[in-house]
Design a protein around this nucleic acid. Structure first.
Lengths: 366, 366
DNA sequence: GCTCATATCGATAACGCTAACATAACAGAA
DNA sequence: TTCTGTTATGTTAGCGTTATCGATATGAGC
């Protein structure tokens, strides 16, 4: 066999060629079909094989070739990500997580915002009409009935992320909010706190209730009576945290610790404490929930419950892809995926200062 | 129930498949290769043949399949996006922008994170080894010498986004930091401020210097003498902003406004102001730079300079694609693209409170 | 007439991937 | 054991286009 001189005039002298599915297969010691299965989240692949393939993918820095894929007939999945105005810190982590997974599985994510005052149902309809195969819902839209109704009616597979109470026909990815809040509260109790303030989250979100429950449970377990006055209503916003903290710190018998239902409100609490000349954590322990970027931006950095938001949105995409590609979208309603949270201690908590026990009320100016 | 008939396996109402080059060839009575030549306006086709093919194309309403084209033709472009740990908010906007453009231009984006403590040069090498045609660099990696060195050595076309001072051989997409800072400072002056504090950013990032320059220019234009004491060093972190703000507010002759080089430090300034019992903006105007999520999370929301991040990363991809597709990658080093910033006014700025010392002479009773 | 160069055009092999079918591997049932 | 049925993996055949090179015409020059 004579081989022809293939020397083409190379304008690109030494450009390594992009790794293909074959390279990955060779490295992993499997056939390319198996690699294809792994990147498409198909089911019938043994875990060990899957791991080997993923390792090879990572090592080679492989990314599937879109053109080839769509040529070969793979339908391009399109997932919608509908959001309104949650904490932006939260949203960013959320979007990054889903985009990351989307790149891997080569699905398209249509990110769409519902403006304030816009009709939610309409927005959902518009999204569905755009030819979407599935929808991912971060809070607070994941508990907005108008949205959920439309998605159910149009039979659109949907994953809600971070709802504490699952809605019918809609998959849920969550942490155990109740037990996380209980753990944090127990931690504060163990530090020696007895008067622990609590700032509740938005009343319409199920996580708020779950976290409050956890707080109460921990108190009960430690036989500390529940004091209604120590609970202030918030709405998950920094602004609402300001008011709630003000309320709690104006109590005659001030709390020595405040546990806010999210980091934004915890940050606000720190701000109020400082404004009142209180040292955190010297005079007041403050902790939050979520562990968004804000928690480590401010000083002192917040002790908080880490909710793996990126991981959760990543899983949401993965879940939808798996179900849609394996034609099992009817099973979606039953799915509840719980991921692990973690209590991360930073600088905002400490044992209470030896309290001037039962000190008489300070003269108030109110 | 006689619906089984209805549900019969769908017969022929097959949706008409798009005509392919073969269909055109058949209709025109030529080979598909000739059709390909006509489509690509190559020269060596007889006019009569060309006409016949064009007629067939028109009759069939044929449009070439993009995926197939890029698969068969020039290898698909792959661009790397290397990031470390910037603000997540920044990153998500950045990623969304580039992915959007990537979809449009039919290129692949390989997103890779450099973990904390990981060797930067190595990470860059790994990326290049993956057969990448170009790299996009968000901050802070776009000024990391280890990364830039590797990219230059391997002759990898690179675009840095948001560097104020271009690095040699590397294209830059930026806003005019200097003029933005000047505009903000001028805005404060116009509000009536005369003593304006400035918190400088990290000394190793070029944007810091540019912003400081802009501040000085605006002062000069308004004939306000530059006072070294009003400039405090920061490092773009909240923590450093705390210290800097403390320094500025401890001056005997306090500033009536503080302009921080980014939003994190501006937020810290607000916190310090509150701690000192100063109302923002009543007693102190504070403004920032960047318009990240934090700017609208805290209260009052920050007046700041908005950088169009999505637009910038979109342009970065567009730029690389254009250069690579047209084989002009040697020109990349000279490119500087400037996009528009915007001063967004929110609630953290106001006219200075009239200070007794500065007031025009008051009628005395002595 | 013949040989060559030149224009045209066509046959075939990639390109990287997945669908569909084929086979191996490993259970459990008979 | 042998059969049967899953489950996990491999093989083959395209998807619609362009590259490459070979195959025809066409025509000039001898």
């Amino acid at each position: 066999m004579s081989e022809s001189e293939r020397k083409r005039r190379s304008s690109k002298p030494r450009q390594a060629k992009a790794p293909t599915i074959v390279d990955v297969a060779a490295l992993a010691g499997v056939s390319m079909m198996t690699v294809s299965r792994v990147i498409n989240s198909e089911q019938k692949v043994r875990q060990s094989t899957r791991d080997a393939v993923n390792a090879a993918i990572a090592k080679l820095n492989y990314a599937p070739n879109r053109a080839a894929r769509s040529l070969a007939g793979a339908s391009q999945l399109r997932l919608g990500l509908l959001y309104s105005n949650p904490s932006e810190a939260f949203l960013s982590a959320f979007v990054v997580g889903s985009l990351e997974e989307a790149g891997r599985s080569d699905v398209q994510i249509i990110v769409q915002k519902v403006e304030d005052g816009e009709d939610l149902g309409l927005a959902a309809k518009r999204m569905v009409a755009g030819g979407i195969h599935g929808v991912i819902l971060p809070p607070p839209l994941n508990e907005a009935n108008e949205v959920l109704r439309v998605l159910r009616q149009t039979d659109t597979p949907t994953v809600a992320v971070t709802t504490a109470v699952p809605h019918e026909g809609i998959a849920t990815i969550m942490i155990d909010d109740r037990s996380a809040a209980r753990e944090m509260t127990a931690h504060l109790i163990e530090l020696g706190h007895r008067r622990i303030g609590f700032i509740v989250g938005h009343p319409e979100l199920s996580a708020s209730g779950a976290r409050l429950e956890g707080y109460r449970e921990a108190l009960a377990e430690a036989s500390i009576p529940f004091d209604e006055a120590l609970v202030a209503q918030g709405y998950f916003t920094y602004r609402s945290g300001l008011d709630a903290a003000e309320e709690l710190l104006s109590l005659e018998d001030q709390p020595s610790a405040i546990f806010a239902s999210n980091d934004d409100m915890a940050a606000a609490t720190v701000a109020i404490a400082h404004r009142r000349g209180l040292d955190v954590p010297g005079d007041l322990t403050v902790c939050g929930f979520d562990d968004v970027a804000l928690a480590t931006t401010i000083w002192p950095e917040l002790t908080t419950i880490q909710q793996p938001i990126m991981e959760m949105s990543r899983r949401a995409v993965e879940l939808l892809v798996t179900l849609l590609r394996n034609d099992r979208k009817d099973q979606i309603g039953d799915l509840r995926i719980e991921v692990d949270y973690k209590l991360v201690r930073r600088q905002s908590d400490a044992a209470p200062r030896r309290r001037p026990a039962m000190r008489p009320p300070v003269p108030s100016w109110g």
